[in-house]
Design a protein around this nucleic acid. Structure first.
Length: 579
RNA sequence: CGGGGUGUGGCGCAGUUCGGUAGCGUACGUGCUUUGGGAGCAUGGGGCCAAGGGUUCAAAUCCCUUCACCCCGACCA
């Protein structure tokens, strides 16, 4: 391929804050069609093709069968699992010409069960895994970050079916390893797996694969001491309270206008962790109020709260409706219709400040174990904190970092097979529901993540295993006959040798040519110019600047081809063995 | 869904206050010069001013409606 023929405009001006979006836009990789909807130009499509090839190879290696589900599905299919009703507006619903409800596929559990149902009626077919690489549409409330978060995207999604939990767990391990191989082969060995919240997918055990980066939208909690890792949403919070010598009596104190934790703490000379605050939410389904008490210095993990309530929630709009005194809500002598919950952080706390449920007054000396009914239930609603206690090794060692989720795996269980009535006959003639796992990777997001991790100020530095082209020939002064002849010769030699080569034979200045080459990100580059020819050689260099050397023109093709293989081997050396 | 903003050649913008028939930069075509990190001169082509309606002799500009996109928040496998 020649640079002169590539469609897509490359330009100089910075356009966005997120570097992958900036560079991929500047490099002519994609063009926005609508909010969160992009067309890809050939450099991006070539990268995606290579990622997809790796995905196929790794899915096949763990005995996957590639299939294809439809993009548009009748609502009845989604009603059969109950998700047509339970999923919010990110599921795009519309009607066909006959007025039937239809949906655009945002995930394909239902389709997978529908496909496998009745053709896997005997235990002898199990286990099996089916996967596809296909377009998903999720009507995200807000797309952003270029290809990091879009509404339409290509995804590899896989679904495995098993006859026992043990078998699912064994396969889950294989899928986990396959994922590690995939990221390593794409040049991202730094991706880590963390425990995650299963959210709307249902199921118990799940992991997200995260690339740690400051532009990530997720928070990852990890422990450098023991290696524990979890998504913030799923991380258990262990809160310790320091024991006080003696318990003080509950005492009402006048606090006037002081309402916030900080103001009251200031006034009473108490640190935030010696207080008990109330946070008010409303359930989405009926707007009923939910009141959560938690130690004053902590924050609510809304995912945990949602899971506990089994209902979506939102911060309360106006709490006066709930007959609550804003700023003075307390757990003692509280009269409310709201659901009242207590965080575990209060269990062993003593001598706290809390609201008195009375304007301008707070209570001091609040000790939950003494002042609340003995049957009070405390649950874990708190966000893990930096420096907090590790749920695994119990040291004060937790770190929190940002990450991009580049894939996930779930042990789904029987949720879909039960709901949709999928069964098989066991050896003894019993009828049972298969147990499922599912495994997803967003292809475009993975590509953008690689760019995010591997770039410099001038453009992406694609790992050779997914680079749109392995080597680019820059022919400076193509009007010079000897340059032209040498460059064209090398171009055809490399093509014949099976090297993926991009040839820039435009009569443009060196600046334009190098800038474009930087943006296109081929990991290797050969410069041919009157200058190099006068030395009787070509200049051979790496996009990541790891080397730059003169090579003999006569053996250039071989030198380049060898280097390509060397780079591929370098990436593959970080790929773990499969299981 | 709240709050804010913007829609004018491919891209980035000015013009809108105060109506008079559209301009700049860049990109693109052509010619000459130039050539190791986004060159110069000359010349040329390209726009129903987001869409629909209204006011007016006259609308990019004023009024109404709609749509799209961007940013912040809510939200989110």
């Amino acid at each position: 391929m020649k640079v002169r023929n590539i469609l897509g405009e490359r330009f100089k001006e910075r356009a966005y804050d997120i570097e992958s979006q900036n560079l991929m836009t500047r490099g002519g990789y994609m063009k926005q069609v609508g909010n969160g909807i992009y067309s890809l130009f050939t450099p991006a499509k070539r990268i995606q093709n290579k990622i997809e090839r790796i995905l196929r190879e790794e899915m096949d290696r763990i005995d996957g069968q590639e299939v294809l589900f439809p993009v548009v599905m009748p609502a009845t299919l989604w009603q059969s699992s109950g998700r047509f009703e339970s999923i919010g507006r990110e599921l795009l619903r519309f009607k066909d010409r006959s007025g039937a409800d239809m949906v655009l596929g945002m995930t394909h559990e239902e389709a997978a069960v529908q496909l496998a149902n009745n053709v896997a009626g005997t235990y002898q077919k199990y286990p099996f895994m089916i996967y596809q690489i296909q377009t998903k549409f999720r009507d995200e409330p807000r797309a952003r970050g270029g290809l990091i978060r879009v509404r339409e995207f290509t995804m590899k999604d896989a679904y495995s079916f098993h006859t026992s939990q043990e078998d699912l767990e064994a396969y889950y391990e294989r899928a986990y390893r396959a994922y590690e191989r995939i990221y390593a082969r794409c040049g991202l060995p730094e991706v880590i797996a963390v425990k995650s919240d299963s959210g709307m997918m249902g199921g118990k055990v799940s992991h997200e694969f995260m690339l740690l980066t400051s532009i990530g939208e997720d928070s990852v909690v990890f422990c450098p001491e023991c290696g524990f890792r979890a998504n913030m949403e799923a991380c258990e919070a262990i809160i310790e309270n320091e024991a006080d010598g003696e318990l003080l009596p509950l005492t009402e104190v006048f606090t006037g206008e002081a309402k916030t934790i900080d103001e009251v703490g200031e006034m009473l000379k108490m640190p935030n962790e010696k207080s008990c605050k109330a946070v008010v939410y409303q359930k989405n389904e009926d707007d009923s109020y939910v009141l959560v008490f938690i130690r004053g210095d902590l924050e609510i993990n809304e995912t945990k709260l949602t899971n506990f309530l089994k209902s979506e929630i939102h911060p309360a709009a106006d709490i006066e409706n709930a007959n609550l005194a804003a700023g003075n809500i307390g757990p003692v002598r509280l009269e409310t219709k709201a659901t009242v919950l207590f965080d575990r952080s209060l269990v062993s706390a003593t001598n706290l400040v809390c609201g008195a449920n009375k304007a301008e007054y707070h209570l001091t000396g609040f000790t939950p174990s003494r002042d609340l009914p003995a049957d009070t239930v405390y649950a874990d609603f708190a966000k893990a904190v930096e420096g907090g206690v590790c749920p695994s090794c119990k040291k004060h060692s937790l770190n929190i970092k940002r990450g991009i989720e580049v894939g996930n795996i779930f042990q789904l269980g029987k949720r879909y097979t039960e709901a949709m009535g999928m069964t098989y006959d066991t050896e003894s003639g019993e009828r049972k529901n298969p147990i499922m796992g599912c495994y997803g990777i967003g292809v475009g997001r993975l590509m953008a993540s690689v760019c995010e991790e591997h770039h410099d100020d001038y453009g992406p530095i694609w790992p050779i295993t997914i680079a749109p082209w392995q080597v680019q020939i820059c022919a400076l002064r193509i009007d010079d006959e000897s340059v032209k002849a040498a460059a064209e010769k090398l171009y055809s030699e490399l093509k014949n040798a099976g090297v993926e080569v991009l040839f820039d034979d435009r009569p443009v200045s060196a600046g334009v040519m190098f800038s474009d080459a930087d943006l296109l990100g081929a990991p290797l580059r050969v410069v041919i110019s009157p200058k190099t020819l006068s030395r009787g050689c070509f200049e051979f260099s790496a996009r990541d600047k790891s080397f730059r050397e003169d090579i003999e023109a006569a053996s250039a093709c071989e030198t380049v081809a060898n280097k390509v293989n060397e780079l591929i081997a370098q990436v593959n050396s970080k790929v773990p063995e499969s299981i």
